[in-house]
Nucleic acid binder design. Structure first.
Lengths: 222, 222
DNA sequence: TTTATTATGAACTTTTTATGAACAAAATTC
DNA sequence: GAATTTTGTTCATAAAAAGTTCATAATAAA
C-alpha cells in the first residue's frame, strides 16, 4: 500500500501507469507538472515518484533538483524518451535513482518500482506498536493483551493512518485521498461515521484516542 | 488563488504579465507607480509583488526600501533591464527575493513566481515562540510546558496576529480586515468579545498579554 | 462630573460534528 | 446462485462548539 506519485503531463500515460501500479496494490497520486507534484508531496507521504522528464512549466530535471535541494530523498524513477549518455548523466547527477525509456514496458516499470522500494527499505509489512497494542497491517487486526480485534478495511486503514503520525492533524480530504484514493467521490461525512465506529470499538482502551480538531479534521494521539 | 501585485508604469506590460499569471490561477492587482502600489498594499492582502525597477515618481528600489522598512515581508520579484552586478547587488541588499531581466520571458516569470510563493510558504515559520510558549498555527493550539490549549479559529488567529507583531497597535478594523476579511460586516465590538475570552483563557500566564490602547485598539506584548 | 470607550455576561445564531438508522454494496455461506 | 452476513455509504437530526450581537457595567479621559 505504498503511495506512489505519477508525474506526467499526459493524462493518458498517467492513467496507464496507474492501472499497472494499482494492480500491484499500490496507491497512486497524479500530477500534471512539477508544481502540482510539489503540492501533492506537500500533502501526502509519497514513497516513490515516477517522473517524466519532458513536461511544460517545470520539467523533471527541475523538479528533481528542487526536491533534492530541500532534502527530499524518496526514490525517483525517471521516464525519458532520450536514451543518451548525457541525459542519463544529468539525471543521475541530480539525484535520480533509476530510469526507464519510452516507450514504457509496463512490466519492467512495475519491476523497477518494486526494486526501488525494496532498495529504499520501505518495508512492505507494517506493524505499528502503541504500548502493548499492535496494529497489524497484514491482518487488519488490533492486537491487545486481552483480545484481537479484527477491523473492516476502511476502519483499520483510518486508524493506522492516524496513529502512524500521532498528533498530526488530517483533514477529512487528506484521509479520503489517502485511504479512498485521490479521485474518490465519497462524502466527507463518511469519515465521521468510520471515526465514530472506531471510537465505539476502542472506548475501553486508553492507550490511544482519536481527537477531533474542530474546523480542521482529526488526529490520533497516544 | 494568491493575490499578486504587478507594479509597472507601462500598462501594456502589466496587462501582459496579468494574462500569464491569471492563466495560472493567480489574482492580480495593478499599480503604475510606487505610490499606487502602497495604496493597493494597504487595502489588500498582497502575497507577492512583481516590480519594475524603472518607474517615475517612486522607483522599484525606493518602494522596496519603504516596504522592507515597515516590516513588509512578501516576496518581491524585480523586473530589470539592467543585468549588471551592481544593480543585482543593490536589489538584493534592499531585500528583493528574485529578479528577472527584460525582455521578460513569460514562462520564466511564471516559474519564478511559483517558486517564490512556494519558498515563502515553506519558509514561513508557522510556529510562534514566546519564551516557553508556542503558538502552533497548524493545530490552532497554544502549547505551554504544562498543557496544550486548543483555541477556536478566530481566537487563535487574533492572538497569533497580535503576538506576531508585539507592541504594534492594531485597530479593531485592522484585525477585522486581517482575520475576518477586508469586506466583513461584522461589528467591531465582536473583536472585544474575542479579546475578552482570550484574556480569560490565559489569565494565569504572564508570558504575554493583550493590552488595550484606549481610543486606538489592542496590542500584544511579551 | 460628564462623556466616550471598553469590559463583561448572557442570549442568540450559525457552523460543525456526532449519532442513529436506513440503505447499498460486497463478501460469505449455504 | 440465492440467501445471509458484513462492510460501506448516505442521510436526517441531535448535540456541541464557535461566533455574533446586545444590554449594561466598569473604566479612563476630558
Amino acid at each position: 500500500m505504498n503511495d506512489i506519485l505519477i508525474v506526467d503531463d499526459n493524462e493518458d500515460i498517467r492513467k496507464l501507469i496507474e492501472i499497472y501500479l494499482k494492480r500491484e496494490g499500490f496507491n497512486t497520486f497524479h500530477a500534471g507538472n512539477g508544481q502540482e507534484a510539489l503540492e501533492v508531496i506537500d500533502k501526502h507521504r509519497i514513497e516513490l515518484i515516477v517522473l517524466d522528464v519532458m513536461m511544460p512549466v517545470m520539467d523533471g530535471y527541475e523538479l528533481t533538483r528542487e526536491l533534492r535541494e530541500v532534502g527530499f530523498i524518496v526514490p525517483i524513477l525517471m521516464v525519458t524518451a532520450k536514451d543518451t549518455y548525457p541525459d542519463k548523466k544529468k539525471g543521475f547527477d541530480l539525484g535520480i535513482d533509476d530510469y526507464i525509456t519510452k516507450p514504457i514496458d509496463m512490466e519492467e516499470l512495475v519491476l523497477r518500482v518494486k526494486a526501488l522500494l525494496r532498495r529504499a527499505r520501505i518495508s512492505q509489512d507494517k506493524k505499528l506498536v502503541i504500548g502493548d497494542i499492535i496494529l497489524d497491517y497484514d491482518s487488519l487486526e488490533v492486537i491487545t493483551p486481552s483480545q484481537e480485534i479484527s477491523l473492516p478495511r476502511k476502519e483499520f486503514f483510518l486508524l493506522y493512518k492516524l496513529m502512524s503520525y500521532p498528533k498530526k492533524i488530517f483533514t477529512r480530504q487528506d484521509l479520503l485521498d489517502d485511504i479512498w484514493g485521490y479521485d474518490t467521490e465519497v462524502d466527507e461525512r463518511t469519515v465521521d461515521v468510520h471515526i465514530k465506529r472506531l471510537r465505539e470499538k476502542f472506548k475501553d482502551f486508553d492507550e490511544f484516542e482519536i481527537v477531533t480538531v474542530r474546523g480542521l479534521g482529526y488526529k490520533g494521539v497516544y
